[in-house]
Design a protein around this nucleic acid. Structure first.
Length: 852
RNA sequence: GCCUGGGUGGCGGAAUAGGCAGACGCAAGGGACUUAAAAUCCCUUGGACCUCAGUGUCCGUGCGGGUUCGAUUCCCGCCCCAGGCACCA
């Protein structure tokens, strides 16, 4: 073997051999337990970034580990290939989105291969391939048949300058990111998936996803937002209509002093008698809902009144910008005393504040500086006075129901999923509009509706599909006359909602899935991806799984049994006061390369191209090798935390591998033909080393298997290497066969335990040890609890909770004996002299606390 | 604004069920080797204090309180940072 560690040579060698032998190809093997490990597939943006390296390094450790534990592991990779950046590239650089995407894919595939991940590349696919998206179009049609797809009006961001619809991310501060024009809100027909039909099931199953982080489940539960409330009718004054409001606080009904409508509410414009009111409504309607967030609460009196359903009082009707048409009924009974938004609104427009819930401390509406939103006792509420608010909710709801003035309802915050995108680079929606027959689904046998490649993506104007006759002009499948295709494409979240299932059988030609293979592999046992997908992607994938189950394709209820959400990769930013953000490699000696000014070192933020605080993994691989990068990504932080990039840390990881290499090189001549130590008692350093080996096996196994904390697994392995190096220096010349045997056992364990993390160097060392076969096919080592056990354990002696001394005892020393020893400890004795021991607290195997 | 996380030495982090705060790594300082440098190896390293330099004292896990014999860990109230977002009545 080489004298010095040469990562490039050994990594390329083993990557080639693994590929030649196809050792990561998997087939269904009935009598072996399967394990499906999946990482979120990448968008082919151009090059792999550190977030990918981290994500896929984590996944690869688990995949390789599970394989060593005897599982038949499916570990696939592919491309989430539709999306907006391809179109932006087309506009900016004149490259066709397809060319751009496929070139990126081939570049990034090479980068991933260079990192040595254990993918079964035979299952790779891209979602922009008609062979993939045609099944998605099929699902769309089947969902349409079942009423799970429908069309309704929705708001879109319209840029008058570019004459096109903008995505939310293309709107910056209310203006178009490309031309700076002020963005308008327009209404447009869009296709929706009826995810709300699954709201209850999606919520219920949150309780069964025991392998998911609680924070993700909490976010999803809140997103679905089930709430129990009451719908109450407020009759209009002098008209035979009523405004239906939704409230979760019917107990506050006597505190309602006005009613607020969403600007989109049908009654809003009807009631608006004056021109000023109409203008206000039109102005608010033009604000996007996201823009309205930051805007001050404002509203206008419609000039009309309604009647309080219980007191008969006249209440003014307002239109308010903070009332949402999408939630509840689009109308709110305003209770300023007990709702902060209503409170602010009432203060602003001088509306009365009526206190109806009295908490323990006496509130007076005149002195209130904010609304009281908590529970309390009802006051000013006629016959309900004196009831606690919780009981009052029930009593008032029942009272309203009995009189036909209201009814109890369950609402969800979750809204249906709008999937229409006025984009070119996406899967076409398989619908035809016929002047005679109306909206006609594309017959299934005509699928796929292929996205034409021979179009020009232009900077200005709408979707190229809407300009391309060859695409949109077609025949009606019913009457055969001239008809038009839908030119919208699907949200790219649709592709990523079912890709995990397609990996089970990506070669299936005549159907989306092959039932038998699907049932063998699904569900995904462990899913790994960024925390930023905690809601949208993960909820959509769960929804799609349930839909595909109900359409008869899948036999599972949930796609991902276990979920690991990783944090982001961050780095400090560099900027020049004149030239803006700078790439780290541009900065030499902390000065700007353009003007020589000192660079400002900014906050640590998520790596992003716009801030230029990115590190190119490829450069690091060239310099240190794939194993070093993988090791660093796993060592620097536990997976769920954000990872702060540090070039120094990478060097540290590299040093560790060099130390491993050198120790192995030095010991090899002595241990090459030695059998690992297996049995018999040892003492002194030999026993200590062997104990460390078994302790390390235990720690690493638990860290990888249960805790998914690779950073602590690695630190345990570093400790083992340090111990081995130390003892090697001390004993290498003693020609002690027992020492060599213990070293051999330690070396084998170290290499095998490290192999999921740094597969190349360990494969090389493994073969140098004279082993045949792949290290990934080596069974994971087990530990012997007896060998791992410390004989003497340190016990901390505290006085009043402060550490004052330590003693060492045999593990099973009884409490009485430890107490006796503690009190006899000279230091403790002197500290206790003249003081009365009140009690002692004994924590087995840890400490004894003497309270005086 | 709302939802969800996070905050520990100069830095990344460790402490697995309330029990030794700072494992492991980085950086820094000192030393060894070398003609020299790099590489490598060894030692020191949270802060302050002390005429008992010790097995010493005190402070210290964002800030302020609380529970407890004992709190990085649990509870209450703040501040700051990050992710997500659709003002959710």
């Amino acid at each position: 073997m080489k004298k010095e560690y040469d990562p490039e040579e050994i990594e390329k060698k083993w990557q080639r051999r693994w590929e030649e032998e196809g050792i990561f190809r998997v087939k269904e093997i009935r009598d072996r337990p399967k394990y499906y490990l999946l990482e979120m597939f990448p968008y082919p943006s151009g090059r792999i970034h550190m977030g990918h390296v981290r994500n896929y390094s984590i996944g690869d450790v688990i995949a390789r580990y599970k394989r060593m534990r005897g599982y038949n592991v499916l570990h696939p990779m592919g491309w989430d290939a539709f999306g907006l950046p391809a179109e932006n590239a087309a506009i900016e650089h004149g490259v066709h989105p397809a060319k751009w995407t496929y070139e990126n894919i081939s570049y990034m595939r090479r980068q991933l291969k260079r990192l040595g991940f254990s993918y079964d590349w035979g299952r790779e696919f891209s979602t922009c391939d008609p062979e993939y998206y045609k099944w998605e179009q099929l699902f769309f049609l089947e969902m349409y048949e079942r009423g799970l797809v429908y069309r309704k009006k929705t708001k879109v961001n319209w840029c008058p300058g570019c004459n096109t619809i903008l995505a939310n991310e293309q709107v910056e501060g209310g203006c178009c990111w490309r031309c700076g024009s002020e963005v308008e809100i327009r209404e447009r027909d869009s296709w929706f998936f009826r995810i709300t039909a699954y709201a209850e099931e999606l919520l219920e199953y949150c309780d069964r996803l025991t392998g998911w982080p609680e924070k993700v489940l909490t976010m999803q539960r809140n997103w679905i937002g089930k709430s129990y409330g009451t719908e109450i009718s407020f009759p209009l004054d002098g008209e035979p209509y009523a405004i239906k409001v939704f409230t979760t606080r019917p107990d506050t009904i006597y505190g309602a002093t006005f009613v607020s409508l969403a600007p989109e509410h049908p009654l809003a414009s009807r009631l608006a008698r004056e021109r000023g009111v109409k203008d206000f409504i039109e102005r608010i309607k033009r604000q996007t809902t996201s823009l309205r967030e930051d805007i001050e609460k404002e509203g206008i009196f419609t000039g009309s009144y309604c009647l309080h359903p219980l007191t008969g009082k006249l209440l003014p009707i307002y239109v308010a910008n903070f009332v949402l048409m999408e939630y509840g009924t689009g109308a709110v009974m305003a209770v300023p005393a007990h709702d902060q938004r209503d409170f602010e609104f009432a203060k602003k427009y001088g509306l009365p504040i009526e206190l109806v819930i009295q908490p323990d401390e006496r509130l007076n509406p005149r002195d209130m500086e904010c609304a009281y939103e908590g529970e309390g006792i009802l006051v000013n509420s006629e016959q309900f006075n004196g009831l606690p608010s919780q009981q009052a909710r029930e009593a008032i709801s029942s009272y309203l129901e009995e009189r036909g003035l209201g009814r109890r309802v369950t609402t969800y915050r979750l809204r249906d999923w709008g999937i229409s995108r006025q984009r070119y680079w996406g899967a076409p929606i398989p619908i035809i509009y016929c002047p005679n027959c109306g909206t006609v689904p594309v017959p299934k046998e005509q699928l796929p509706v292929i996205l034409p490649l021979e179009v020009n993506v232009k900077e200005k104007g709408g979707s190229p599909l809407a300009d391309y006759k060859g695409f949109y002009e077609t025949e009606c499948p019913i009457c055969g006359k001239k008809a038009f295709r839908e030119t919208d494409t699907m949200d790219t979240f649709v592709e990523s909602s079912w890709y995990f299932a397609r990996y089970a059988c990506p070669d299936k030609k005549d159907a989306p899935f092959d039932r038998e293979r699907l049932n063998y592999w699904l569900p995904v046992d462990q899913y790994v991806g960024g925390i930023e997908h905690a809601i949208l992607h993960l909820l959509y994938a769960r929804f799609f799984t349930k839909v595909l189950r109900d359409l008869g394709y899948l036999d599972i209820d949930e796609p991902f049994s276990r979920l690991l959400t990783q944090g982001m990769v961050c780095k400090e930013t560099y900027s020049c006061p004149i030239h803006g953000y700078l790439f780290p490699e541009e900065v030499k000696d902390r000065v700007c390369p353009h003007c020589g000014r000192e660079v400002l070192v900014g906050r640590t933020e998520k790596m992003s191209k716009s801030k230029k605080n990115v590190v190119d993994p490829e450069r690091l691989i060239e310099r240190y090798g794939a194993d070093t990068i993988r090791l660093f990504c796993l060592f620097a932080a536990p997976p769920e935390r954000d990872l702060e990039w540090s070039e120094r840390g990478v060097e540290g990881a590299n040093r560790f591998l060099k130390r491993l290499w050198r120790l192995f090189r030095d010991t090899l001549p002595y241990i090459k033909d030695v059998r690992p130590y297996r049995e018999g008692s040892l003492d002194g350093d030999m026993q200590a080393l062997r104990r460390k080996v078994h302790q390390t096996i235990k720690r690493v196994t638990i860290d990888i298997d249960e805790r998914l904390h690779f950073n602590t697994a690695i630190s345990a392995l570093m400790e083992l290497l340090n111990k081995m190096t130390e003892l090697w220096e001390r004993y290498k010349d003693r020609k002690d066969p027992i020492f060599y045997a213990v070293m051999r056992e330690a070396m084998e364990a170290l290499i095998v335990l490290l192999s999921p993390i740094v597969p190349h160097i360990t494969e090389e060392l493994w073969h140098n040890l004279g082993k045949a076969g792949w290290i990934i096919d080596t069974p994971w080592p087990s530990w012997d609890e007896e060998i791992a056990k410390e004989e003497r354990i340190p016990i901390v002696i505290q006085i009043n909770g402060r550490v004052r001394s330590r003693i060492e005892v045999l593990e099973d020393t009884p409490e009485e004996e430890i107490k006796r020893q503690a009190l006899e400890d000279p230091r403790i004795k002197s500290l206790l002299s003249g003081r009365q021991v009140k009690r002692t607290i004994w924590v087995p195997k840890r400490l004894i606390n003497i309270v005086v």
